[in-house]
Amino acid sequence: MRVRVLFFGVLKEIFGTEDKVLDLQKGARVADLTAVLFEGRLGPEREWARSMAVAVNREYAKAEDTLQDGDEVALLPPVSGGGQ
């Protein structure tokens, strides 16, 4: 199955793209997708996997949530909107 992954903020720079399409095994969970994405990334880059949130179809998701074909998955670093 295919999902579209969106990258924001610092993660967009780390992955060098705004979005990409990933082929995943049926039944893959959010944690499986992030494992694929962060495989081979070391040090500070990998640390973002701890502090980020993931949204599936524009709703905050949990690591164990199961993905569906066609889902829009967004990787969100800690947010910093608003005033300073």
């Binding site: 903020g9 610092v10 949204a55 967004a74 670093p77 947010v79 910093s80 909107g81 608003g82």
Partner: peptide, 8 residues
């Protein structure tokens, strides 16, 4: 908003 709305 500063903790949950996806703005950077």
């Amino acid at each position: 908003l500063k903790r949950t709305v996806p703005i950077w």
